[in-house]
Amino acid sequence: MEFPGLYNYWITIVLMMVGFYIVIAHDNLIKKVVGLNIFQVSVFVFYISMAKVQGGTAPILDAGIETYSNPLPHVLILTAIVVAVATTALALALVVRIRNAYGTIEDDEIEGQEDDA
């Protein structure tokens, strides 16, 4: 069991847990969106690190190069990043609407207002 060979997964997990912690421990909705973004980036890093081949190069065909890294995860993550920004924009739009409706973007204060009502 040579442990160093797995460090890419561990980096992913640390990042993922940081994002997860922000999402569940913070009440501020913008902070939660940032936490979700970190979570997303950790998944991206996971895919990209899976695609890496030792001694390979970027997947652009050229004469004299034999090993390329796996192009499929690159494609998936490429589109996922752009979709991520679109969904982030949607989440932020929802935050703005919540702020307009409740006057706050803190989760517990919104819950308090809901209980009062």
Binding site: S49, A58, H74, L78, A84, T88
Partner: peptide, 27 residues
Amino acid sequence: VLDAVDVAFTEAAVGAGITTVLMLGTL
């Protein structure tokens, strides 16, 4: 570093650029 040049390109343009601008707009 992980040989994913296309992805790096997108992340630099989208993640560092547009997302930051949108977040600032929300703030």
